[in-house]
Simulated assay, not measured.
Amino acid sequence: MKVRDILRVKGGTLYTVSPDEPLARAVETMAQYDIGSLAVMEHGQLVGMLTFREVIDSIARNGGTVGNVTVRSIMDDHPMTCTPETELDQVRPMMLERHTRYMPVMDGGMLMGVISFYDVARAVVEMQSFENQMLKAYIRDWPQEDAAPTGSETPGSQPTAH
């Protein structure tokens, strides 16, 4: 399975923010749409990612308030990315290694979407469930050896020669 398969199921909605937006406004957007990340775009280009991890870190450093900081001052300005053609078997270890919960999907210089660790986990579970169903169907339809008794044999007896 490839990242493009996740994007196809997920749909085309993409939430973005400008790097010069106040963090408070970005947090409002994240809360309004119940999302954990925003792609940070400037002049049509991805320049970073803002996730709840950066927001919480900023709030902790700012005495428990959002303060007057901008998105640019706390965003991850070097987010790990993948392409629509990246295999899920490659994405999972990448996300685990860097503790990344959200990954922008880039096709050349164009942002195609953002996948989350949840999206990846759901796709893997669905893929495994489908494989399990196929295996169970295959086993259920497994051809049986012709071991049934012929009419002259009784269970537990040896075949007799005629």
Rank of each mutant, 00 (worst) to 15 (best):
V3N: 10
R4H: 06
D5F: 00
I6S: 06
I6N: 07
R8E: 08
R8I: 01
V9Y: 01
G12V: 13
T13V: 13
Y15S: 09
Y15G: 08
S18L: 07
P19F: 14
P19E: 13
P19L: 15
D20F: 13
E21C: 12
E21L: 12
P22G: 08
P22A: 08
A24K: 14
R25I: 12
R25E: 08
A26E: 04
A26G: 10
M30S: 03
Q32V: 09
Y33I: 07
Y33K: 05
Y33G: 06
D34K: 13
I35D: 04
S37C: 13
L38K: 09
A39K: 02
E42A: 11
G44M: 02
G44Q: 01
L46I: 06
V47D: 08
G48C: 06
M49G: 04
F52V: 11
F52S: 12
F52Y: 04
F52D: 14
V55A: 05
V55L: 09
V55P: 04
V55I: 11
I56V: 13
D57G: 11
I59M: 14
A60V: 13
R61Y: 07
R61D: 12
N62M: 09
N62L: 07
G63Y: 02
T65Q: 11
V66G: 02
V66I: 11
V66A: 05
G67N: 05
G67T: 02
N68E: 12
V69G: 12
V69E: 05
V71I: 12
D76C: 15
D76P: 10
D77Y: 15
H78F: 14
T81Y: 03
C82R: 02
T83H: 04
P84G: 15
E85W: 01
Q90T: 11
Q90E: 12
V91Q: 09
R92A: 14
R92P: 06
P93Q: 08
P93K: 08
M95N: 03
L96F: 11
R98D: 03
H99L: 15
H99F: 14
H99D: 14
Y102N: 13
Y102I: 12
M103A: 00
M103T: 00
V105L: 10
